[in-house]
Amino acid sequence: MPFPDVKLANRPLHFIYLCDCSGSMAASGKMQALNQAIRQSLPGMAAVARDNPEARVLVRAVSFADHAAWHIQTPTPVDQLEWRDLQAGGITAMGEALQLVAAALQTPPMEVRALPPVLVLISDGQPTDDFAAGMAALLRMPWAQKAVRLAIALGHDADLEVLQRFIGSDPSPTAGRSPRRPLQASNATSLAQYIQWASTAVVGAASMPASRVQETPLEAPAGNIPLPDLPPTVLDPTDDVGLTVW
């Protein structure tokens, strides 16, 4: 019998950047470094997507300053993505950005059979709106609870406590595994390394279908996707790398 007329399909993997575009990002070339880091990471991300054909990597981006808005609203296959530069200016409506992402993580439009999404929050400052309300809205979404949530702090003025709340607490720190803490980028080089890591190693890990035990109060959770090791040059994310610029 011939194979039936059914649609087999790989599983969507949604990757969403949440980028701080407040006025302070204009200082010391942070905005330029972020644009450059994301743009330079795209070929590597596309290569990882090609190597994992069972996942369909779809990228979106939210920018937040005075208000939050979709910078890339349509989930875009990474090999079709052209990064338009973000512009700095305004305050830090991080809570509104979380609300925006929360709305996008509803099912539908999120597909029931999607892989856990990857959310990357990048900020150099403190939220100026209701971060707690945004975080609560986000965590009400089951897809946000299942997501791999990463945060990159730019410079020493970033609110690490807020970024840690976005990631969630480190449930089971294990020797040899990357800790779940905000990644602290103190210059353009380390920012580029972290963006590269998130867009390649993490995407690769999230692309592999790997079932796991449903967590219970009796079992320490291990996170949704086992995070791969950080780049060798920045094994300890709290260490400064090179000259502190930001």
Partner: peptide, 17 residues
């Protein structure tokens, strides 16, 4: 159909219950 067992999470023989 357990909503907690979604995404890649599932019930397992290795769970205490």
């Amino acid at each position: 159909s357990d909503p907690a067992a979604a995404g890649e999470a599932t019930c397992s023989l290795c769970l205490p219950q």
